[in-house]
Simulated assay, not measured.
Amino acid sequence: MEISFKDKRVLVTGAGQGIGRRIAEQLWRTGAKVVAVSRTMSHLQSLQNEYPSIDIVELDVADWNKTREVIDSLGHFDALVNNAAVAVCEPFFECTPEAFDLTMAVNLKSIINISQVVARKMIENKTQGAIVNISSQASKAALKDHTIYSASKAGLDAVTRAMALELGPHGIRVNAVNPTVIMTAMGRIGWSDPDKANTMLSKIPLGRFGEVSEVVDAVLYLLSDKASMINGVELPIDGGFLAT
Rank of each mutant, 00 (worst) to 15 (best):
G18W: 04
E234R: 10
A32R: 09
G20H: 05
A87Q: 08
K8P: 00
M104T: 02
W28Y: 15
I54V: 14
V86A: 03
F93V: 15
A85C: 05
I230N: 09
C95S: 15
A119L: 08
T184N: 10
I189H: 13
K66T: 13
I204S: 03
A32S: 07
L201V: 03
V88L: 09
T40H: 12
V216Y: 06
L222V: 04
D55R: 15
V212C: 06
K144L: 11
I204T: 04
V215L: 04
I56H: 07
E166L: 06
Q137H: 14
Q17L: 15
N125I: 10
V34A: 03
I111M: 12
N83H: 07
A79F: 03
M186L: 12
E234V: 10
A154H: 05
Q137M: 14
T67S: 03
L156V: 13
C89Q: 14
A85D: 00
A164I: 07
Y51A: 01
F93G: 13
T30K: 14
I131W: 01
S136P: 06
L223M: 08
E25T: 15
G155T: 02
I204R: 04
F100I: 14
V216E: 13
L242S: 08
E124A: 06
F93S: 15
D101P: 06
L167P: 02
G18Q: 08
E90H: 14
W191N: 13
G14E: 06
T96K: 06
E94F: 11
I23A: 05
V34F: 12
W64N: 13
G75F: 02
H146F: 12
T40S: 11
M104W: 03
L108F: 08
L108T: 01
